[in-house]
């Protein structure tokens, strides 16, 4: 396959570079997901005037290690009448699709491994693991494929809560995919490309964040992103007050952990898309360098998800469907129409 280097003079992307990139993404995002659990508990605790984890290590920092040891050593139980194979595969689907989606988005800038490093010296590591021209669609498509994780998990476990969780997975993910697609179409029409790099360059050249052109699309995308990553107020898949844990009811140990890592990786993916498409990507801003800006933007969206979780209660399934089909989708279509007319007038 041809590897496109969008910015000239860069060394060619080799297979070794892509493999190193994939390992970096896996290691860093898994670690960030683990640390994310700690951050989530601390942030929720401070917002609710509690202390959060305090006992393991200074400020409870080693709580991550304690949780990890517990997850790894816990017995992996498969229920009696469950479909063993599908039950065991389902968590892998969630984790795998979440990480494949990350292959299409830029994580860290390009760099060359210094010559001093033995064996690997001089290998160019690209910023995007797989820089195809349709990056945005790949990410959306893989996140759509991610619905099979919870769906198959719920159906394989011979448990009524699981089945209800699976049914909710299907309706929630199918419905909100529509809103994600419609909302992101409007910025795509303005930039005229499906590549994240083009989005970044457009916002760099015009020195404007697309959120100022497309505030409606931004809000729609955020709401749909919350629903697609199964975050409160849309976490109906495992709504513990109604359906115990939904699709995850029968899972324990590392298999449950894989659902968790997948969910956190998806949160990071949504944060990256939102900051790349709407908030200017990795461009310098005033005196702040590009690398700092993109990390700050991603961190802000991650924090926003925790903030919302601390502020709002769950909503009912019928409210979820009402919101999607009667409010968000019509607004999305109208926004797209207006953008289309505006783009046509400007081009003429």
């Amino acid at each position: 396959m041809e590897t496109t280097t969008m910015i000239g003079q860069l060394p060619e992307v080799t297979y070794a570079g892509v493999i190193i990139k994939a390992i970096i993404i896996l290691a860093v995002i898994s670690a960030v997901a683990g640390f994310g659990t700690y951050v989530e508990r601390k942030v929720l605790a401070f917002m609710q005037r509690r202390l959060g984890p305090m006992h393991v290590g200074p400020f409870g920092l080693l709580q991550i290690a304690a949780d990890g040891i517990k997850l790894f050593t816990k017995e992996d139980i498969v229920p009696q009448h469950a479909n063993r194979f599908i039950f065991m595969v389902a968590p892998v689907i969630t984790a795998a699709t979440a990480f494949i989606a990350l292959a299409g988005v830029p994580v860290f800038p390009d760099f060359v491994i210094p010559q001093e490093v033995p064996l690997l010296g001089g290998i160019f590591v690209p910023s995007i693991a797989s820089d195809v021209n349709v990056g945005i669609l790949i990410v959306i498509g893989m996140m759509a494929a991610g619905l099979y994780g919870p769906l198959l998990a719920g159906m394989a476990q011979a448990n009524k809560w699981g089945i209800i969780g699976a049914a909710r997975t299907a309706i929630q993910f199918l419905s909100y995919e529509v809103v994600t697609g419609l909302s992101i179409l409007a910025p795509i029409m303005i930039v005229g490309s499906l590549s994240f790099v083009e989005f970044n360059n457009y916002q760099g050249e015009h020195e404007v964040w697309l959120v100022f052109y497309q505030p409606v699309a931004f809000v729609l995308f955020l709401i749909a992103g919350f629903a697609e990553t199964n975050r409160t107020p849309f976490d109906l898949l495992e709504h513990e007050a109604e359906i115990i844990s939904g699709y995850a009811t029968e899972y324990s140990g590392m298999r449950w952990g894989m659902f968790f890592i997948g969910e956190y990786a998806n949160m990071i993916t949504i944060s990256v898309i939102a900051s790349m498409v709407f908030l200017g990507g990795y461009n310098d801003l005033w005196i702040f360098p590009a690398a700092l800006m993109i990390v700050l933007k991603i961190a802000f969206f991650f924090f926003l998800m925790l903030w919302v979780r601390a502020s709002w209660p769950h909503i009912r399934p019928d409210q979820l469907m009402w919101l999607c089909w009667k409010v968000l989708m019509p607004i999305g279509v109208i926004n797209m129409l207006i953008t289309g007319i505006a783009v046509m007038l400007v081009l003429e």
């Binding site: 790949i138 498509g141 759509a144 099979y148 159906m155 299907a170 199918l174 697609g181």
Partner: peptide
């Protein structure tokens, strides 16, 4: 690339998900 992604979104994301909804 474009057709590959459309195959993913349409068949995997939408058509198969509808099948699986019937399988409920």
């Amino acid at each position: 690339d474009f057709l590959g992604v459309v195959q993913l979104i349409v068949y995997v994301g939408a058509v198969m998900a509808l099948y699986s909804f019937a399988m409920m």
